[in-house]
Amino acid sequence: MYTQGLDQKGQADSASNGAESPADLDAFQKRIDNEEKIEPKDWMPEAYRRTLIRQISQHAHSEIIGMQPEGSWLTRAPSLKRKAILLAKVQDEAGHGLYLYGAAETLGVSRDQMVGDLLSGKSKYSSIFNYPALTWADIGAIGWLVDGAAIMNQIPLCRCSYGPYARAMIRVCKEESFHQRQGYDIMVQLCKGSDAQKAMAQDALNRWWWPSLMMFGPTDKDSQHSAQSMAWKIKRFSNDELRQKFIDATVPQGEFIGLSVPDEDLKLDKKTGHYSHGEIDWQEFIEVIKGNGPCNKQRMAKRRKAHDDGAWVRAAAHAYAEKQRNI
């Protein structure tokens, strides 16, 4: 389950429709400030609704596309146990996508609309899933780093002001720690293995480290749209704060198993207890978001094909339901 700078895109649609009185807006903000939860049929500013629809649907799309990098290893898992575990994890991702689509639908957008926007490319998903899972160690790195970063992002979302999103996140977070642990477990086992296995683990860490840091979205300096999401309590911590938490938690986990993150500028500040890190390649991030990552085209093509190939199943279920009604 993965969010990332999803509140960054398309803020142009936050223009209000003009029918919202200052008194309504004030009353709404007061509810938010009092830590009241907003529920589906409550009055809400149009911009709040749209921000949430965009963020939740893109979060859902990320779960659905997120099944692909790991799904590609289901038939190649090194043992039956690993295969069963990976299958359960990938199934969880599908489930997370469904919880989230359900939460977004409470805001008045239909499932078909959201799926259509994903398939047409109008709606985005997390950039991280446009990187390939080249070796079995990547499955370890994805669980450990990608799900780890996702947890950092999602725990504060459990307190999001919009009730259905917060409830979906609570459910997701409960399941997510299994994902992170199974990933770290793969890395632990590889690091206990042969030199070649350990090198494979280090190589996977090298490739996934920077993209994982990018999952938190642009730096606070460049993240101009965070302020409104913070005021609405959709977002509770800034991108840089969450990124810092992730680095502080993850670097020692790597060291524990003899792996080092690929950042020559990484330094622990003994006074603050925080790591300072090297420059993130934001140009790469922008390119991947724009559709020029290593796997963007492949991911979308596969999703579209799955949707098309499933059309007869959807139609058959419909026809059967229709027939039952007419008996």
Binding site: L98, Y99, G102, E105, R111, A317, H318, Y320, A321
Partner: peptide, 10 residues
Amino acid sequence: GSIHAADDQL
């Protein structure tokens, strides 16, 4: 939560 399905059993 909620789900979509073609009929009650599904």
